[in-house]
Design a protein around this nucleic acid. Structure first.
Lengths: 221, 221
DNA sequence: GTCTATATTCGGATAGAC
DNA sequence: GTCTATCCGAATATAGAC
């Protein structure tokens, strides 16, 4: 079962939208926007559909014209948050040095998380009981992972465990930043150092294994 | 305002407890134990005081003899979780090599988190709206930080940012382990590597700054 | 699409007797 | 300390008219 709500409409071209459909989506966006504001005020799980409806001058039951349930609302918020993250990464101009690029991405990510604690909570922690993002909502997340993987490959980081380790480092920085210095930059500032240490480790391991190969070969000949 | 509940009792020695006090504490412990079980089933925020009371054969209002409110219950759970973590770290025999000791601690920590997701949630993520641990509940957490700091110093890790970076790395491993491979060891296995990379980075920076000092000195003389 | 009205359930917390 | 009884509020969700 999915949380997504497909509003009923009957245009001829399924891809584009008529005036009604556009208005519908615009209002839906506004609702989501206000939902974020409420979440920042009352906590993510604390969003009340009544308050949300009030904030857009609707009665509470009318929200069901836009979302099939409260979980459907979370799903929409999740998707929007993931799109924001992806959009930000794509917007920034790519740096020539792949390692500088990694540093920039990590800084971006940590800042992105610390900008908005509840967004970080919805996107990266599983805190809403019963909520699991739908396939559609996960799509931008998948694209982002692809992008990250590509950037890591460009810096010659693709060994087994490398990506796991990198993801752990980034999520750790983000988490500490959000938890202990929200809005600040205490862990953002560590991005360069951590990337350099990580890259040095990857290099060191590559050296060691290539030396091992050389040794083995020289033993044979 | 604190969430802790000091049960009224009138013994002569304030430190020790009479029979009644001991029974009270024992039952309180049992309640907390069941609260963890419910949290694992329904989520942390999903604990219902009615269900909890049922599970210990009490009526719901009777719980207020043990906790002043639901937040007080969370506070007790938080304190207990922190004590478990501290107890585990103290129980393990200390390794002679301070870096091996660091590896062991990190593995411990990541395993501790992944053993029990909701405990990890309560202890390390701020997910319950309105809940902030009381001073008393934070006490074992402080002790744990002291212990960690001491272990890091033993490995000559005490530079500015070193502890921040280390904490980020550990929490990142734990978070990824909990989120993506709960009960497994995909990130636990990275503990040794990550500690070694971290230590190498600290050494490298120490070398560099000592060389800088040497250069400056040789310029002077 | 939006409304009114309402169903339904459940939550935490309190009063006061025993 | 434990109970019964109850309060009070809040929540999501549905039915059906317009």
């Amino acid at each position: 079962m999915t949380h997504r709500f497909i509003p009923p409409h009957d245009e001829d071209a399924p891809g584009s939208l008529d005036r009604r459909g556009r208005r519908h989506l615009a209002k839906r966006s506004r609702i989501i926007e206000n939902a974020w504001a409420l979440a920042r005020r009352d906590g993510l799980a604390g969003i009340s559909l009544r308050d949300l409806a009030d904030s857009v001058d609707l009665r509470q039951p009318s929200l069901y014209a836009y979302f099939e349930s409260k979980l459907g609302l979370y799903d929409a918020m999740f998707e929007e948050g993931q799109r924001q993250l992806l959009a930000r990464s794509l917007a920034r101009e790519r740096l020539p040095d792949p390692r500088d690029e990694l540093v920039a991405i990590v800084e971006d990510l940590v800042r992105f998380s610390s900008e908005d604690t509840v967004r970080h909570q919805l996107l990266f922690q599983r805190t809403i009981p019963g909520f699991e993002p739908s396939e559609v909502a996960m799509e931008p997340a998948r694209e982002f992972v692809d992008l990250m993987t590509e950037r890591l490959r460009a810096a010659r980081i693709d060994g087994p465990g490398d990506v796991d380790l990198f993801s752990a480092i980034v999520s750790g920085l983000a988490h500490q930043q959000v938890a202990n210095d929200p809005g600040g930059d205490r862990w953002v500032r560590l991005a360069r150092r951590v990337v350099e240490a990580f890259v040095a480790d990857v290099d060191r391991r590559a050296d060691r294994s290539s030396k091992q190969r050389t040794t083995r070969r020289s033993l044979k000949t």
